[in-house]
Simulated assay, not measured.
Amino acid sequence: MRTIHAPRLLLLLGTSLVVRFGQTLRSEDRERGDVPGWVMITLMSATLVAFILVMAQGALESMFNAAMEKVNP
Rank of each mutant, 00 (worst) to 15 (best):
M44D: 04
L48C: 10
E69K: 12
V54D: 06
L17G: 02
G14I: 02
V19Y: 05
F51E: 10
P36T: 01
E69D: 14
E61M: 03
Q23K: 09
E69Q: 08
G58L: 04
D29N: 12
G37H: 15
N72T: 12
L60S: 01
I4E: 06
E28G: 13
A46R: 03
R20G: 11
L17F: 08
T3R: 13
T24K: 13
E31A: 05
G33M: 03
R26D: 13
G22V: 04
D29M: 08
S62M: 14
I4M: 06
G37Q: 13
V18Y: 00
L12A: 07
P7N: 03
L60D: 07
T47K: 01
G22R: 06
S62D: 14
F21S: 07
A59R: 06
V35H: 09
E31M: 13
V35M: 14
T3I: 01
D34H: 15
P73S: 12
F51A: 04
T47C: 09
L48S: 11
L13G: 05
T42D: 11
A59F: 03
R8K: 15
V49G: 01
V49P: 01
K70W: 04
V18A: 02
H5Y: 11
L25D: 05
E31K: 11
T47N: 02
V39K: 06
L13M: 05
L60M: 03
F21R: 04
M40C: 15
L11W: 04
Q57C: 08
A6C: 05
A67V: 03
L53W: 08
P73W: 03
V19I: 15
E31C: 09
E28N: 14
S16H: 14
E31F: 08
A50D: 04
L17V: 02
K70Y: 07
M68N: 05
E28T: 07
T24E: 13
V54T: 07
L53A: 14
A59E: 11
L17I: 05
L53G: 14
G14T: 06
I52T: 14
S27V: 10
R30K: 15
D34L: 13
L10D: 00
F21G: 01
T3D: 04
